[in-house]
Amino acid sequence: MSTALNFPLGPIRSAITEGLHDAAEVIKQEAIERAPKDTGYLRNTAATAAEGLEAAVGFDGPYAVIQHEEVGFHHQDGEAKYLENACIAKKEVVGQIVAEAIRRSIG
């Protein structure tokens, strides 16, 4: 026995994209707070993008990856793995944000 869902997929996909964008913004803000701060340049390069069923958070600059990956650096303000740790810290919130966007779209 099967049950057909009568929801149009277009609005649901749009809601997922919207939810992913909002979730990426939450992760970005957490990552900004965790990113090493010397001049503030790294924190100011944070950006998000969402398209379809994918979203991304990133930092730009010649040393963004080095600052993220090098756990041996001492930071007076911030930490290594700032983006990874932000994702881990906000993983439950991300699911809730996307779920809420879908719920709104199906009424």
Rank of each mutant, 00 (worst) to 15 (best):
S2D: 12
S2K: 15
S2E: 15
T3I: 14
A4L: 14
A4F: 14
A4D: 14
A4W: 11
A4V: 14
A4K: 15
L5D: 13
L5H: 13
F7C: 10
F7V: 14
L9H: 12
L9M: 15
G10T: 15
G10F: 11
G10M: 09
I12V: 15
A15H: 11
T17A: 12
E18S: 13
L20H: 04
H21S: 13
H21V: 00
D22G: 07
D22R: 14
A23Q: 08
E25I: 01
E25K: 08
E25G: 09
V26T: 10
V26D: 10
I27V: 15
I27S: 10
K28L: 09
K28Q: 13
K28W: 00
E30T: 06
A31N: 01
I32H: 03
I32V: 15
E33I: 00
E33R: 13
E33P: 00
E33D: 10
E33M: 09
R34G: 02
R34S: 05
A35Q: 04
A35E: 03
A35C: 09
A35T: 05
P36S: 04
K37Q: 06
K37P: 00
D38T: 09
D38Q: 09
T39G: 01
T39L: 05
L42C: 04
R43F: 01
N44Y: 02
T45Q: 06
T45M: 06
T48D: 06
A49D: 11
A50V: 09
A50G: 06
E51W: 11
E51Q: 15
L53I: 07
E54F: 04
E54S: 14
A55Y: 02
A55Q: 06
A55T: 04
A56I: 12
A56E: 14
A56H: 11
A56R: 15
V57L: 10
G58M: 07
G58I: 01
F59M: 06
F59E: 02
F59W: 03
D60G: 13
D60C: 03
D60A: 15
G61M: 04
P62A: 10
P62Q: 04
Y63Q: 05
A64N: 03
I66T: 07
E70F: 06
V71T: 13
V71E: 12
G72F: 02
F73I: 09
F73S: 01
H75P: 07
H75A: 09
H75S: 07
Q76D: 14
Q76S: 11
E79P: 02
E79I: 03
A80W: 03
A80K: 01
A80S: 12
A80V: 01
K81F: 05
Y82G: 02
Y82F: 12
E84I: 02
E84M: 02
A86M: 03
A86T: 02
C87M: 13
I88N: 08
I88A: 11
A89T: 04
A89H: 02
A89C: 03
K90S: 13
K90W: 00
K91M: 06
K91T: 05
K91I: 05
V94L: 11
G95I: 08
G95Q: 13
Q96D: 09
Q96F: 00
I97S: 05
A99P: 01
I102A: 09
I102P: 11
I102K: 08
R104W: 00
R104I: 00
I106Q: 05
I106L: 10
G107T: 10
